Simulated assay, not measured.
Amino acid sequence: MRRRWLTEEHEMFRDSVRRFLQDEAEPHMDEWRRQGVVDRAVFRKAGALGFLFMWAESEFGGLGLDDFRYDQVLIEELYRAGCGDIFIPAHNRLVGRYLGRLASTEQKQRFYPGCISGDTILGIAMTEPDTGSDLAAMKTRAVDCGDHWRLSGAKTYISNGIIGDLFVVAAKTGEVGDRQTGLFLVERDMPGFSRGRNLEKLGMKAQDTAELFFDEVRIPKNNELGDPSRGFYYLMENLAEERLQSATCSLANARAALDETLAFTRERLVFGEPVASFQNTRFQFASMATDMEAAQVFLDRCVEELNAGELAAEDAAKVKLFCSELEGRVVDQCLQFHGGAGYMDEYMISRRYADARISRIYAGTSEIMREIIARKMGLDFRGKH
């Protein structure tokens, strides 16, 4: 199905991203997966081509392209090329949009140039060792000391945790048990800020994931991001876009897996016939292709709503749930069609299968997505029995 809402400019952008990945990323992915982290240079090269913070205002050095479709195309090409564990999308939108929505003019002038050039790599620190999707239960605290904040606590599973230079850190600022939370900009060289090990993972091997520690880190007041009492609400507001981005990644990985498997099954012979010629194979492909077209229409509609500032939290939850669950089914079936070869890491489907498993966990688990959707349907019985 031709996606009529992508313009000629979007497709020209796609060609540029594809060439960039062919030249600067694909040849290095095996090495980066072995070392557990991409080279910082890939961010700088992406920045030089205008692929970072594309939405940023021109007065701060950005392109002013506040259109998620450009990031959507970027994500599709990253996964098509097998480079989904280069976490540029997290830098651009998952973290970057917190600055876009909340940063002061002074903060934009201070941080945007590095974010746009790729010299400053972003991360966000929400998850803690004892808390996952329940952000209200976080224990990291920031104490107001008059002219600065004192930040103490620990975060885990932080993407870009090793190579990151600037982190949006969520911390409690109110009384124990309440939801008063602040967001703070923690810079690489702040005393008391340290990183733990680069965590070994099932998939996304080149994407560094780390523990972060804050030992009474002194945070100047000009590193507050927005109102330090409203961080919880900022997180809730931004999660809709994060979940849409997650859905985009899931569908892109599923589509790439399907395309690669179509090519493989046309060549692989069983009983002297191509695997693609068997009825079961053809019917499975037909069903997967149909599901993905339906998902694409749903996803594109949500992107349209995001661009218009109208994406509802429950719709973001629905598209994230649908696309991540679909991705799991598709990559599993595609690996099955590869037979024993699919279990070998030299085949991309093996990596896609491992990478896909996190999609039903991060940005809110499938169970949390179902809970959000159910509550919006009026199925919220908390405290009523």
Rank of each mutant, 00 (worst) to 15 (best):
R266A: 10
P113G: 04
E9G: 03
S16Q: 13
I349V: 12
G123V: 01
V143R: 09
A125L: 06
P27N: 10
L299R: 05
L202T: 10
T140I: 08
V42R: 06
D178E: 12
Y353M: 10
L74A: 02
A363Q: 07
G364W: 00
A48T: 09
W32I: 08
E310M: 07
R141Q: 02
Y233E: 09
R230A: 07
D355T: 03
A374H: 13
Y70G: 01
E293H: 00
R329I: 12
R382V: 02
A137H: 09
L239Q: 08
H28K: 15
D130Y: 13
W5Y: 11
L225Y: 02
P191W: 15
I121G: 06
L135G: 00
E293I: 04
R97P: 06
G383M: 05
L269P: 10
Q336C: 13
F184P: 03
D259M: 15
D189A: 09
N253C: 11
K108F: 08
N198L: 08
M292V: 07
R150W: 12
A210D: 08
M12T: 15
M54Q: 10
G203M: 02
L74D: 02
Q284F: 15
M369S: 14
S287I: 13
L326H: 05
I368L: 14
Y233I: 01
C302Y: 08
V169E: 03
G47A: 10
D119Q: 11
T131K: 12
E371P: 03
R329S: 11
W149D: 02
Y70L: 04
V169L: 02
E11R: 14
D189W: 12
L212R: 01
A171K: 00
V168W: 03
R44H: 10
V270Y: 13
S133L: 07
T140E: 05
L239G: 04
N222K: 13
F337Q: 13
R195D: 02
I124W: 01
A46I: 09
V275K: 05
L21Q: 06
A171Y: 07
L299P: 00
E224V: 01
E211H: 12
S16R: 12
D315G: 04
R375F: 07
G62P: 02
T173D: 04
D71P: 01
D215S: 14
D23M: 09
D39S: 15
F87W: 08
F271Q: 12
E260Y: 13
I88H: 03
L258Y: 11
E314T: 09
I219K: 07
A136N: 12
D345V: 06
E187Q: 11
S117Y: 09
S152Q: 10
E211D: 15
G272V: 08
A25H: 07
F20E: 00
F322H: 15
E367F: 11
E11D: 13
N223S: 14
C145M: 14
R97L: 08
L244Y: 05
P220G: 06
A308E: 14
